[in-house]
Amino acid sequence: MLQVRNLHAFYGRAHILHGVSLDAGAGEVVALLGRNGAGKSTVLKAIMGLLPPAEGEVAFDGRRVERLPPYRIARLGLGYVPEERRIFTDLTVSENLEVGRQAARAGLPPWTEDKLFALFPNLAAMRERPGGRMSGGEQQMLTIARTLMGNPRCVLLDEPSEGLAPIIVEQMARSIRALKGEGLTVLLSEQNLHFSQAVADRAYIIEKGQIRFGGSMAELAADPSLREQYLSV
């Protein structure tokens, strides 16, 4: 579904990604692990075209996308859920969802408001509430729902558990498993290993802009030195 090869990216003059390669197969949940500043978010932004990669290839659904602007990539069915949520605080819940809406995709049942409210019941009661008046956890639900309105085949989730109370993190894990149940491919960046273990099939570890490990969650669990060296546990 998603193939990344030898990705290089810069912020200004700072060389952030040094040849990142990774894959996510259809229906898979893949975690990209690493600590703050390791380059996790940058990988997702580069895939999405928000930070155009300087070098390397990104193929989505068999199509090369590394030179496309973000909106074209989004229209191909790649959804992006940013860190820090970035919901439109002046817009109501319904309007936030409207901004994310795209035409239905062939072969996929389209997401509707009602279907999303079934997945995130908290949101149903606050359709007309401005996004700025929601709690952090509610905003996190809304930002995912907003991206789903674009009927993506694959979703990039940037730090979905960041800054959430541990108890909300558990709800978030349930929601991601539900997305997997719908057949979506998910690539998520995380610092939280417990959370990743609860949702992901496979994991990559990134450090200083390079992939240092790629394998199943079981392999990662079996190697405490990896966790000690690269992760915040």
Binding site: A165, P166, I167, V169, E170, H194
Partner: peptide, 8 residues
């Protein structure tokens, strides 16, 4: 209940 949940 509100913050730590079950993991800590």
């Amino acid at each position: 209940a509100v913050y730590l949940g079950g993991t800590h």
